[in-house]
Design a protein around this nucleic acid. Structure first.
Length: 287
DNA sequence: CTATCTGTTCTGAC
DNA sequence: TGTCAGAACAGATA
C-alpha cells in the first residue's frame, strides 16, 4: 500500500544500503516504466535519497535523479550481496520470490553485486530520470508535507474557503493540498478525527481542522512506526509483513464491529470512486 | 464461468 | 474553474 509511510520506510531502509554505491547495470521492460536513457544512470554513484508526497527520489552524482512512483501495486525489493532482502510497497509474494520474475519492470545492479528490483503488477508505476531542476518544478505543485511547518489548521481553513463544497475525503487526498495522503490513511485519519468523510469542508471550523491535522499526523506516524507495509529480513527472518495492516481500524473492515466499541458496525460507501470505510455513529457529519 | 473490485494519478469532457 | 468518468493494467475475489 504505497502511501507516504510506505515510501518513507523504503527510503529510510534503502538509504543505509545503496548510498555510496555505483550503478553498474540497468535493465527494464518498457520505456513507459523506465523513462530515461540508461547511460545517464550507469556508472553513477548514489549520493542520497528523499521522499516528497508518495514519490521516492534517488539522487545521483551527476545531478540526475531516479524518481519513482509506485502507484497502486509498485514494489521496491533490494537484495544485498549476502542475499538478505529489504522489500517495500505493495505487499505480495514477490517480496520473497525468486527475482527477477514476471512482475519485474526494472533491475538495477550495483558495484557490489547487490540489486534493486522495481516490481509492479499493474504497470501504473514509473521511474523517470530527471534533473534537479525538473524535479524542483514537479515538487512545487504539491501541497505541504504533513510533517512540515506548513501543515496547519490555518492553512487548511484557507484552502477550504476556496472550495467549500468539496467533501472532506477528496480534499485531504488532493495532493496539491496535502502531499502524501491516500485512501487508507485518509479513512483512518477521519475515523480518529471522528468526522464523516462526506462533510463539506466549508462547514469546518479552525478547531475541526486542528483535530484533522493532529489525526493525520498520528495515523501517518503510526504507519511509519510500524514500517508501513514494508518488510525486511534484516529485521525479521520470518518474512513478516509490515505491521501497519494489523493496526487499521476501519479500512477494509466493513460489517465488523466499530473498534471504539460504540456497538455500531463499520460501513462502506463510495466517494469519488474510492471505497470509503467509516463508522456513522462515531464520525460526525458537520453541517 | 462471469462480474466486480482494487492501495494512484492524469486527461479530457462538460 | 470545479467535478466527474474513464483510462492506464493485471490480477484477486465473490
Amino acid at each position: 500500500m504505497p502511501e507516504l509511510p510506505e515510501v518513507e520506510t523504503i527510503k529510510n531502509g534503502l538509504k543505509g544500503r545503496i548510498v555510496g554505491k555505483i550503478i553498474t547495470d540497468l535493465s527494464f521492460d518498457s520505456n513507459k516504466t523506465f523513462q530515461g536513457e540508461p547511460q545517464e544512470v550507469i556508472g553513477q554513484k548514489v549520493i542520497g535519497l528523499e521522499r516528497r508526497a508518495k514519490i521516492l527520489r534517488i539522487k545521483l552524482e551527476n545531478y540526475k535523479n531516479l524518481l519513482f512512483h509506485l502507484k497502486m501495486t509498485g514494489q521496491l525489493i533490494f537484495i544485498a550481496s549476502d542475499k538478505k532482502r529489504l522489500a517495500g510497497g505493495h505487499p505480495s509474494h514477490d517480496w520473497h520470490d525468486k527475482l527477477p520474475n514476471k512482475h519485474t519492470r526494472i533491475t538495477f545492479t550495483f558495484d557490489d553485486d547487490s540489486r534493486l528490483f522495481f516490481n509492479d503488477l499493474r504497470k501504473f508505476g514509473w521511474c523517470k530520470v530527471l534533473t534537479d531542476e525538473e524535479i524542483r518544478e514537479i515538487f512545487e505543485d504539491y501541497g505541504p508535507e504533513p510533517f512540515s511547518k506548513g501543515f496547519t489548521s490555518e492553512y487548511l481553513l484557507e484552502r477550504a474557503k476556496k472550495i467549500p463544497q468539496r467533501n472532506l475525503k477528496q480534499f485531504l487526498m488532493d495532493q496539491k493540498i496535502i502531499a502524501g495522503i491516500g485512501n487508507i490513511y485518509n479513512d483512518e485519519s477521519l475515523f480518529l478525527a471522528e468526522l464523516m468523510p462526506t462533510t463539506k469542508v466549508g462547514a469546518l471550523t479552525l478547531t475541526d481542522w486542528q483535530t484533522i491535522v493532529d489525526s493525520v499526523k498520528n495515523v501517518l506516524e503510526l504507519g511509519i512506526k510500524y514500517g508501513g507495509t514494508t518488510d525486511s529480513d534484516y529485521v525479521n527472518a520470518e518474512g513478516r509483513k509490515g505491521g501497519m495492516q494489523e493496526h487499521l481500524n476501519v479500512y477494509h473492515r466493513a460489517d465488523q464491529p466499530c473498534p471504539k466499541g460504540c456497538k455500531g458496525l463499520v460501513e462502506k460507501m463510495t466517494i469519488g470512486g474510492r471505497g470509503t470505510f467509516y463508522c456513522r455513529l462515531c464520525q460526525k457529519e458537520k453541517k
